[in-house]
Design a protein around this nucleic acid. Structure first.
Ligand SMILES: [Mn+2]
Ligand SMILES: [Mn+2]
Ligand SMILES: [Zn+2]
Ligand SMILES: [Zn+2]
Lengths: 140, 140
DNA sequence: AATGATGATGAGAATCTTTTTCATTGCAAG
DNA sequence: CTTGCAATGAAAAAGATTCTCATCATCATT
């Protein structure tokens, strides 16, 4: 994942794009909002505009470098596309995100789409729940 | 689904609430945005404020009368909760929504959540694709 | 039926997220 | 190096949703 990926996407290799890609690659938190990216880059001393972050993330998504998710909460989150598709599990208390992939579910989805005459192009599966952290359990 | 449901939710039985519930019950399009509800009620000659529609839909959701979905598109859609849970298939061209339920997927979801130490409280599965309508097919 | 406390309403302002506009800047092809 | 065209950032705009607050309606109690 480097500047060539930006170039291959038909985009000019600019500092904002390089920095956003680096951040998505190195940040401990894989799933970040545009606002997150913007603030983290500012904290790192980069000069960047929020509009640019939104623009570039959308371009990266169109180029297949990045995936956008609509979790609950009103804002989209993005993650670097590391090849394999996967689905998500989100803790409704602390927001922790776990990734998983299940071939049984993936297969059934394709079958169900076909049964309904749909040609599936994408899907979104998000499990919401209380994660293992005791502080996130039902009885507090 | 009547005024008693509103009362049981601990809410006063008011005209806006009655009208919103009626619309959700009778409208041909089951999945509607707050804006949709607002405009349809205005078209029906009702006097209602958009803020009230948002407020009431949120209250109905909290009371379990209504379910909120975050499909792609930036705005939430609501539907009357008719007992059974189900998932959705959305046409990326015309926006048509089909409902489905699959016990295999439902079961796997619960298993996967447990495997990851999560206590599942909810989930959202949306399949995006091209529906059966020829105008929505890939080759236009 | 009249009263009154409290909840509900609607208009508009405010907030939050995302997109657009536009003057300026910078990448990269030649 | 030039130079065209894409990219940037600031600010404005747009779109969705929530908040504020003065007024009004519901409903339990007289
Ligand atoms: Mn992920
Ligand atoms: Mn539905
Ligand atoms: Zn948690
Ligand atoms: Zn369609």
């Amino acid at each position: 994942m480097d500047n060539q990926d930006i170039r291959k996407a038909g985009l000019k290799v600019t500092l904002p794009r390089i920095k956003i890609l680096e951040l998505l690659e190195n940040n401990t938190q894989r799933h970040v909002s545009a606002e997150d990216v913007y603030k983290m880059l500012l904290d790192n001393g980069e000069e960047i505009g929020l509009a640019t972050v939104y623009r570039v993330l959308t371009q990266f998504e169109a180029a297949g470098l990045v995936t956008r998710h609509n979790f609950e909460g009103g804002h989209a989150v993005f993650e670097l596309d590391r090849g394999g598709h996967h689905d998500h599990m989100v803790c409704v208390v602390c927001g922790k995100v776990e990734e998983f992939i299940d071939t049984t579910i993936e297969k059934r989805q394709r079958e169900i789409a076909k049964e309904h005459g749909f040609e599936m192009v994408d899907h979104s599966l998000i499990i919401y729940g209380h994660c293992g952290n005791p502080k996130c359990k039902v009885g507090y």
